[in-house]
Design a protein around this nucleic acid. Structure first.
Lengths: 209, 209, 209, 209
DNA sequence: TATGAATGAGAATTCATTCAT
DNA sequence: TATGAATGAATTCTCATTCAT
């Protein structure tokens, strides 16, 4: 692999970035479609409109392509969530928002959602070395809300933030996974699901009961 | 593949069954360890203490081995759950039991839990064609309890059984997945998690709040 | 391979011979159907109604099965031809007879004819080491007639017996091969072919022209 | 198999064609030597001086290699025969030429002759689906001469063109086959054989006898 | 003798990766 | 930089042969 060398010119960096993203997007589509190990580099290359060899100018190998894909997308998602939550005051509303945001991810990019739910788990290696950091940050944003709710007395103090954030995430992840892998996706109502989940969780943790 | 022909003698059927299970168990260990597509038939064979070719006397191909593994184990699990719930009267206790049962699966056979959480999702093909039936039955046992709780007035009537069973299952599945893939497994307390989850869910759906 | 040991009892020899022939016939059918290298020992065994291993009590290996098949059948054919020609006086009639006999082979046992035309050539090894002797004897019976015709003045003296017998055999062999491999065998008239060939050859070599 | 994509540049097409022929020739040698089913792809690859995988860039699989080999060579032969007969006026001379041509094929390329005589018959599949067309065209060129001889009154009208062309071809094919598979090839005189065959056939079908 | 389950050497084929252009 | 033809290691699966029963 030889990373392009004219990265110091603005021109060059832009061209580099553009193709890098193009490959990443192609990989996302192909991997989501057939699964990582059934996907061929050639398929990704032709989906990206580049030569097979070009992939190796931008990524170390096939594994690195998957890793980079997760890194980039998860980072994007984390940033997105941070922005989405930025100006929402109440913890209940923040919780509502975070649930909507997660469901929105699946709605807007089922390809990526499918990849994350299915392939991210595939390899403990990826899980541990690369994606974990980003995933942890994502989960922490959930945890922060729960923590804040406890602190402000809006949420009951007697549950483990750490455990509950996983419970919440797992519930959403599974529900999205079902939706994503469902061929007649239209008939299932993600919004309804979001409402139910919000109700359940608020009823369970609200202090005023 | 030439299924052995002396299945009509009791002797023969026993020997067949014994080796079939031996291979299935070996597959479970190997697949759980390295993931399906990273596992080699040779590895499964030598783990089972048989020749490579022998695998093909019992299974059509590598895919069939995975499918058969899921079919057999999920069936076993469903039967186990049915028995476990058989003589428990109250819905709250039944719910408690079902959560314990699921966590117990992970505790008693992390190998299998890892396989189910990770590899079962791998291929929509498997998901849809083979395992779905068994998975549906498993989820239905969850749904039945929720339904019964509503009917008997113990649970609130205003939640969707169908959605909640997925939420519940997803939460547990994720939490088990985390635990299973966690190298320092000992330090995380699955029982504590089970307790928290039960509390949360009962608080959310109990009618008397 | 352990040739049966009770071959000294009449009883035993008969049983041995019977099964030997049974396997040989099964092999003929199977080999003729799918070709030698596409045929599996299991197929021959089940066609013969014996176990796979039993084949190896009667034949050294798969190659030996083919060799033995050719040896047995060609020997049978040679003997048959010798008898057929035994009491025919004139060389013209003998030539006519030999042509009829060859075509009759194809007519009566297309399976074998297909095998001989196709598989006998396959391996120079078989050709040279085993079948050649029998084939040579067969061809010699053709040569003998031509020789005798020359000697008695019925046939022209100016052709090479050795070459002509090959030409004759080749012509017949090919024509039979076409017929054998022809799916709508019925519509082609082997008898007509025999007549034409006889006419041509007699016109070419008769002395009285 | 991924057929090279730069076939639109003259450069590329030439390089492709060159390697395609190189592999085809290597296959001819190897297949002729050991027979198709005894030949390994690795052997063909190393005989062609390419990697194993390269074969699969040019041919779909091992069978396709054999089929393509026959298609290419038979086409070449048909074209050659057409040219050879182009400017020969008399039917007797044309018949002589066609016999010489066929024997010349064996003389000049015993490898190919061996393949055609032995392996082309191997599989009825190949025979019927692929090679038949080319073989038919070849035989038709024989038939055309016989037909023309009848029409012009040079040949007797009382034989079946259709049958005789097969008789002729069979005779030559067999004789070539013997020669090809004969280790001490030098001692047998193909030219002498050609002369004898021509004499016999002309004596048999000429009208002026 | 007869069996057929077990074996494992062997072969075709795939595909990530390289590298000459 | 970009390409895609070439590679060959690696893997699945087959099937002739063996051997315990």
């Amino acid at each position: 692999m030889a990373r392009p060398r004219d990265l110091d010119t603005v021109e060059g960096r832009k061209r580099y970035e553009e193709k890098y993203q193009r490959i990443l997007n192609a990989a996302m589509h192909v991997f989501a479609q057939k699964g990582f190990s059934e996907s061929k580099i050639t398929e990704v290359a032709s989906a990206a409109g580049v030569g097979d060899g070009t992939i190796y100018l931008y990524f170390k190998n096939k594994d690195d392509l998957l890793i980079s894909l997760f890194e980039a997308k998860l980072e994007e998602i984390n940033a997105g969530l941070r922005i989405a939550l930025a100006d929402i005051p109440g913890v209940e509303d923040r919780l509502r928002k975070i649930i909507d945001f997660h469901l929105g991810l699946a709605l807007n990019n089922p390809q990526l959602a499918a990849l994350v739910t299915i392939e991210l788990r595939r390899s403990a290696k990826f899980m541990k070395e690369y994606a974990k950091e980003q995933l942890t940050e994502y989960l922490d944003q959930w945890g922060d809300i729960l923590e804040e709710g406890k602190r402000t007395g809006r949420f009951r103090p007697d549950f483990s933030t750490n455990i509950l954030k996983h419970i919440l995430f797992g519930a959403m992840d599974h529900v999205c996974g079902i939706w994503v892998s469902n061929p007649n996706r239209e008939t299932v109502d993600l919004v309804e699901i979001g409402g139910q989940l919000t109700d359940v969780i608020l009823r369970a943790i609200s202090a005023e009961s």
